[in-house]
Design a binder for these strands. Structure first.
Lengths: 110, 110
DNA sequence: TCTAGAAATAACAATATGGTTATATTGTTG
DNA sequence: CAACAATATAACCATATTGTTATTTCTAGA
């Protein structure tokens, strides 16, 4: 996974409210009206949080009449956890820089 | 791991520059003067990014004469990846709310 | 002790974030 | 169609974030 993409998802997860929403959706699907009273913030605020999670692919929505049920994309969450253990390998990039003499090594190195 | 703590670390990782720094430190320790030319931002900017990673425990520093070498806390990074697969279980909290009649269920539920 | 290099801190500017209230949209129902 | 419920969007505000330049701190060495 690319750095920017991964950083975007991590940033989306890097908020207590959104992280709790994700943990809740991990137990069961919820609609916005169920989430609102749990967080002590306004309905639009919850709506925006959920929307942000959706925009990075962590959450899917299903309309059921008046309600929109949000569910966790568990595969995506697993992917992210895995990506942290397998960060993009920059070894080749570093070697490229070294070839071009662009890799700075500070004087303390042998 | 608590939600706020976890969210703080994820937020620290949720920035392209910091994520790349982490990936670099995953290969080898670096001092600030080596990182600066790789990112096209000023030395104080890099210093602040590294400092932020340090403040959430992702990075450790070792002074070697004039230089400060930063190294990745690989255990911590693993922990975070694992925490995403084992998010704090809110089942009990939900049951507590249910007992007290504070758990809202929207009308679409049976 | 004086100078120079590496890194950190301070002060500031531009933009992003996360909340609010008000309003629009979408779907249900009388 | 009118009225209402659930969400989404718009406009706005306060604060946080991320960068800058200038300055300070810490260490090494002449």
């Amino acid at each position: 996974m690319e750095f920017e993409q991964l950083a975007d998802v991590l940033k989306a997860l890097g908020d207590t409210t959104r992280l709790k929403i994700v943990a809740l959706l991990n137990i069961r699907d919820c609609c916005v009206c169920e989430l609102v009273p749990l967080f002590g913030i306004s309905q639009p605020a919850v709506s925006k949080h959920v929307s942000r999670l959706k925009s990075v692919g962590l959450v899917k929505e299903t309309r059921k009449g008046m309600w929109v049920f949000y569910s966790l994309n568990k595969e995506k969450l697993k992917e992210i956890g895995f990506a942290l253990t397998q960060l993009p390998d920059l070894t080749n990039e570093l070697k490229q820089l070294e070839k071009k003499g662009l890799l700075v090594k500070c004087q303390s190195r042998s």
